[in-house]
Design a protein around this nucleic acid. Structure first.
Length: 141
DNA sequence: GTGATGACGATAT
DNA sequence: TATATCGCCATCA
């Protein structure tokens, strides 16, 4: 499995991380991106989610939301379906249809899992960062 | 083989 | 506080 993941595409690695999110918990795109590391951005995670195929139906894509705690899917019944699925898992939404990360936020996978699967959770290179401010980004775990 | 497009997030101004 | 910009990968036409 680890070799498979290591050689896999970024999307496959993203799916592997998403599959670690337990029911009743939610993670943000940026959080998943930070775990995957290696040139993965929040946007790439979003792309990966949109590219989900039937084959990867086991991936709990509904547990990945944006940094505001809201559901980011645009069209059709997607957002509604996602919220219903999360509520079924016990995720609480407030009046603004937002998730409280203090209550349902995912703290991340186990370090042992990360090592086993050759993941290198590191601060992602963000847009033009002229004045590096570590610690701010490292608030993930 | 090339180009456009799409579930985001953080910084800079 | 709000808007603009940049980073980045896989898929499809």
């Amino acid at each position: 499995m680890s070799d498979t993941l290591r050689n896999a595409n970024l999307h496959t690695r993203i799916y592997a991380v998403v599959q670690q999110i337990p029911a009743g918990k939610v993670a943000t795109y940026g959080q998943v991106a930070a775990i995957v590391g290696r040139g993965c951005n929040a946007r790439v995670v979003g792309y990966a989610m949109s590219a989900l195929k039937v084959d990867e139906a086991e991936t709990p894509w509904q547990r990945v939301i944006n940094a505001k705690g809201e559901i980011s899917i645009r069209g059709g019944s997607g957002p509604v379906v996602q919220q219903v699925m999360l509520e079924k898992e016990g995720v609480q939404f407030n009046d603004k249809n937002q998730v409280d990360f203090n209550d349902c936020g995912w703290e991340g996978p186990n370090w042992s899992w990360l090592e086993e699967n050759q993941f290198y959770p590191a601060p992602i290179l963000k847009g033009k960062k002229k004045s590096p401010s570590p610690g701010k980004q490292a608030s993930l775990f």
